[in-house]
Nucleic acid binder design. Structure first.
Length: 488
RNA sequence: GCCGCGUUCGUCUAGGGGUCUAGGACGCCGGCCUCUCACGCCGGUAGCACGGGUUCGAAUCCCGUACGCGGUACCA
């Protein structure tokens, strides 16, 4: 990397769908690289495919990035020195340079119909240096004919004239030099018949015009990079540095799919992670570790720490499998770092969503009790149902282990004592229990465990005294007596 | 099929000719702590894809094979 040119990178998603988790990682690496080098991080919308355009997708992308905190310096909505940042608004540039390529003899008009192209693919293979002579294009037709065809119809494209049998070198920051033989490269369409550029043209024109210094993108682009290099060369432009990131794979192999989301619980879209209650900083931390290593034994990072530690040469080259357990582990640490108040605030929407009615004060109490027992915020309510409703059954294993012949009597006696008590706080509840244990000459555990079982239906969970206090006097008495009835 | 990229514990990775009887993390298993669970701490399990070279010496370099992934559109 030339250290004298300012670093400018871009994240260039296409609004054909919601932002994918892989896209977020690409954005993250771009962001880290930009911040690390005091450069600019640009958001560019690559909306050149009218057929696949999805309304709302750009909004989702913006929302997802905002949620994660990856702020860009320039983009469609806030503008910047290189505006506009939506390719559909930059048509003039693409036409201009497509024209230049034609004039320089590095591109040509092609008039072939879809049927002719299908036919070509079947009989000869690709539209390239070996077959273009047989096709209907400005290389084979007379100038007059070409002019007439262009005038008469809009149904033509501009194709890149790929030189025959040359070797093209791509310098990749992650993989080193990768070479391709131009005989393997077809005459890529640059301008589509609808007047829109293809990704390939738009991408290099914009990267050049926007002074992009480093193109950091997914590995799926590596194969088309030689085409881009050929175009930079034809236009007399210096290509940016390239870095192709390894792809994120499903634990089942292949790309992450909606099926992984359903079967493995791995969300595919960024906003789904928000919905699932993951902490954005944890997601970013996890994503950073997926394909990159700081070289130290540190694993838990804040964004700023990641920026400090980041470098492209520590990004791996092989595909990486998504590991939900690891994400949950990282998230668990983020949850634990939250203040109880913050956790309660985050839990609120999830509480409301399942229709539990609980005041802020009590929600904070509950959060305090479960904070280091959950990995993801919604577990405050999805696990730990006993805070909100009486247990419907008692964990069988727990009953076998903790419910003894004396449990019923002890629990009843405890319930009676609690009924007589005025304030039902953690200390009172504990004092009463210990006093009763002394009185009956049993270990505290003889009452503690049946109590937990009766009140929560489980043999595990928060400390009993906090648990009882949080559940409340009325419910505790009801549940204890009910447990004695059903467990005997 | 062809082209490209990749291959270290189940997973993410460190390591880039001797310091590697391969280090860390997640997961899993065991222990300690403890009213239970969880946290925390301690310990354990498990790996250089295979075959040839090069070298005094290879996880590290080269070649081949296998496997995986990507590309092969008027999609990005």
């Amino acid at each position: 990397m030339a250290s004298d040119t300012p670093v400018r990178v871009r994240f260039a998603p296409s609004p054909t769908g919601r932002l994918h988790i892989g896209g977020l990682r690409t954005a993250l690496y771009n962001y880290l690289f930009a911040r690390k080098h005091d450069g600019d991080f640009v958001l560019r919308i690559e909306d050149t495919d009218q057929a696949r355009y999805e309304p709302g997708a750009e909004e989702d992308i913006r929302e997802a990035l905002a949620w994660t905190g990856l702020e860009h310096d320039e983009g469609p909505e806030q503008g910047g020195d290189y505006a506009p940042y939506r390719q559909s608004e930059r048509s003039g540039h693409y036409h201009e340079y497509a024209q230049k390529l034609v004039e320089a003899g590095r591109a040509y008009y092609a008039f072939d119909t879809e049927e002719e192209l299908d036919d070509l693919r079947e009989t000869h293979g690709a539209y390239d240096g070996s077959t273009r002579r047989q096709m209907r294009n400005s290389l084979t037709l007379s100038d007059e004919e070409v002019e007439r065809l262009i005038d008469e119809s809009d149904d033509y494209v501009i194709r890149l004239k790929v030189p025959r049998q040359e070797s093209v070198q791509v310098e990749d920051e992650i993989r080193g030099t990768v070479s391709f033989d131009t005989s393997e490269i077809d005459d890529q369409v640059l301008m589509k018949s609808d007047g829109m550029p293809t990704y390939h043209l738009a991408n290099i024109v914009d990267d050049h015009l926007m002074d992009i210094s480093h193109v950091i993108r997914g590995e799926e682009w590596l194969s088309s990079t030689p085409k881009h290099v050929l175009m930079y060369d034809a236009l007399g432009w210096e290509p940016p540095a390239f870095a192709h990131l390894p792809l994120i794979l499903s634990p089942n192999g292949g790309k992450l799919s909606k099926r992984d989301a359903n079967e493995l619980g791995i969300p595919v879209y960024v906003t789904d992670y928000r919905e699932a209650g993951y902490e954005p900083d944890a997601l970013l931390n996890f994503l950073a570790l997926l394909g990159w290593s700081p070289g130290t034994e540190e694993e838990l990072f804040g964004l700023d720490d990641m920026i400090d530690a980041f470098s492209l040469d520590r990004v791996g080259a092989s595909g990486v499998q998504f590991d939900l357990d690891k994400l949950r582990w990282v998230n668990e640490h983020s949850v634990r770092d939250l203040s109880v108040d913050a956790l309660a605030e985050r839990a609120r929407p999830h509480v409301d969503a399942v229709g539990d009615e609980v005041g802020d004060e009590r929600l904070r109490t509950i959060c305090g009790l479960v904070q280091d027992r959950i990995q993801v915020v919604p577990e405050v309510v999805t696990d730990n149902r006993y805070f909100f409703e009486d247990p419907e059954e008692y964990e069988e294993e727990g009953v076998q282990k903790r419910w003894t012949d004396e449990s019923a009597d002890l629990l009843l006696a405890y319930a009676d004592r609690l009924e007589a008590v005025d304030s039902f706080d953690t200390e009172t509840v504990e004092t009463e229990l210990r006093d009763l244990a002394d009185e009956k000459d049993v270990g505290a555990g003889a009452i503690i465990h049946p109590s937990r079982l009766a009140v929560s239906g489980r043999s595990y969970g928060p400390g009993v005294f906090g648990l009882l206090a949080a559940v409340g006097k009325e419910a505790c008495l009801r549940r204890m007596r009910r447990a004695v009835e059903t467990l005997g």
